[in-house]
Design a protein around this nucleic acid. Structure first.
Lengths: 140, 140
DNA sequence: TATTGTTATACTCTATAACTATA
DNA sequence: TATAGTTATAGAGTATAACAATA
């Protein structure tokens, strides 16, 4: 009998938890991921965003249109290839990403504060390893 | 300057990763969560499922109807109160939850295998603490 | 011709409001 | 009257197919 918590199950529950922790701006998960990516990496091609976020090209066209309508992102042309559309976050979009990050961090800080010092230390010690795990997945 | 990985950011990326790791049965996240809950806790009232998963009562009615149509869950009456509907997973539903769990576990096992032994140990050591963190959130 | 992006259209999911049945 | 659930209806989101513009 193996009664230890299983990594997949714990991750699954972390996913559910995270989904409920940042609610500012009422973005769905894909929209939030696109904005966060635009902040991390700067302007991106529409097609590249579609591939990286795992949605169709028309799906990304429509998502960017929504973000644009809400003032969170804008389209700019690419001077070297006029078929291309570059998408970038507006200051409002960047601000929203930051507000969501802060909101999540505050909620997590409170939850972590309810743990024992030993538990806090264990999570803290695992953070770099978890980061590398996520990176390995992103590259595959 | 704090260049350490931040807990919220790492959790956010874990959420994105998990969403792409279990795809069997083509369930959306809410449907998967409901089935997993039915397996964990046994038959539940429709209203209770709606509250716990954060969807409206009509939304849960429709989700359960879809699960029923796909043979993954069934409705049964409550003998003591005839207004109540109890929802339970069918054997097919339980089997699908298990297949998704196994699929996720296998994918994660492969990713974890690419980490250093020290990283693996750190994640392993943090598992009970992460479980308690998730529990604290669930109770709040 | 191939590639980048958009438009047209249809389907899934989920919400609110109004309803039925039971307590 | 209050509660459990369903039905009616509408809107958001996303997919595939067909299209337009540029390379």
């Amino acid at each position: 009998m193996d009664s230890r918590p299983e990594l997949g199950t714990v991750f699954d529950e972390i996913a559910i938890m995270v989904r409920r922790l940042s609610t500012a701006g009422q973005l769905n998960m894909t929209a939030a991921a696109v904005l966060a990516r635009l902040r991390r990496k700067g302007p991106q091609r529409l097609t590249e965003l579609a591939i990286c976020e795992g949605v169709s090209q028309p799906g990304m066209t429509q998502l960017v249109t929504r973000l644009e309508r809400e003032g969170l992102a804008r389209r700019t042309p690419d001077a070297s290839d006029r078929r291309v559309v570059l998408v970038e976050a507006t200051p409002e979009g960047l601000d929203l990403v930051e507000r969501r990050r802060a909101e999540r961090a505050a909620a997590l800080h409170e939850l972590v504060g309810a743990l024992s010092p030993a538990d806090r230390a264990a999570i803290d010690a695992a953070l770099p390893a978890l980061t590398r795990l996520v990176e390995i997945h992103r590259e595959s």
